[in-house]
Write a protein that binds this DNA or RNA. Sequence first.
DNA 1: AATATTATCGCAACAATGTTGCAATTAAAA
DNA 2: TTTTAATTGCAACATTGTTGCGATAATATT
Lengths: 130, 130
Amino acid sequence: MKTTRNTVAKTAVLEIFGKSKTALSHAEIQKQTGDLCDRVTIYRILERLVNDDIVHKIVNLDGTVKYAKCHHHAQRVHIHNHAHFSCEKCLEITCLENVKPSYIIPHNYKVNDINFTLSGLCPNCLNSNI
Amino acid sequence: MKTTRNTVAKTAVLEIFGKSKTALSHAEIQKQTGDLCDRVTIYRILERLVNDDIVHKIVNLDGTVKYAKCHHHAQRVHIHNHAHFSCEKCLEITCLENVKPSYIIPHNYKVNDINFTLSGLCPNCLNSNI
DNA sequence: AATATTATCGCAACAATGTTGCAATTAAAA
DNA sequence: TTTTAATTGCAACATTGTTGCGATAATATT
Ligand SMILES: [Zn+2]
Ligand SMILES: [Zn+2]
Ligand SMILES: [Zn+2]
Ligand SMILES: [Zn+2]
């Protein structure tokens, strides 16, 4: 029954997530923490936060991995079935909490998790594009 | 107007795709080609095949990248909007050509590409699990 | 068939990202 | 305060992917 501890590094990472409107990569988090802790420590903190359902992992079309805070706790089954939008211009990735795909899949598949990522131009970049 | 060439390496890679029922990673392709060509060459062949809409790239939840042959040519716009299934047990990734997600996204987003990956247990592993 | 063009390749070198083992540290329980 | 073990730092390694450039070879041209 592993207990979880509040370390300075973990607290700092959580604070960074709290201030960010978009998903963050390991590199971005490391940049913001400066030399507070080791590179590996951030990897391990992210791993724990994902396991504890505090943040979720997002894999983009180009293979980049980002993390975002979960805004949907207190559910029996914790599934991230909302869409993510990846802007090709500003490269930001945001959660679209209200966009959820519907689909029909053959009954002989058992689905445990889904990943639904849309890429294109976000509202900001769409405007500045005109 | 760059012309494309049929090299032995490219032919071998295409033949491997032809024989495979599932999506293939760079490492898997390299294993099957043996020492026919360099590692980098396979990367470049895959890059060209993707650009020519002969194969499409699939990014999995765990970050692994695979490629699968396109079975839907002769369309004006070549979009891979079908779902992909990633089996957590046998680790195989397959195209579900007939499974396409429907969704509603705010009008101020411009969607150019989508990635819809389901993970869980494939029919094979679901059966052998009982 | 011989030659010219250039797409493709091999190789070396590099970069980014992620993992593992282990001793040292430190948050939290006793 | 002492004890426990979760967490960290560091070094070392693995994987994946990219780039530059001279050499090779597929295709077009003569
Ligand atoms: Zn944008
Ligand atoms: Zn999200
Ligand atoms: Zn399976
Ligand atoms: Zn596919």
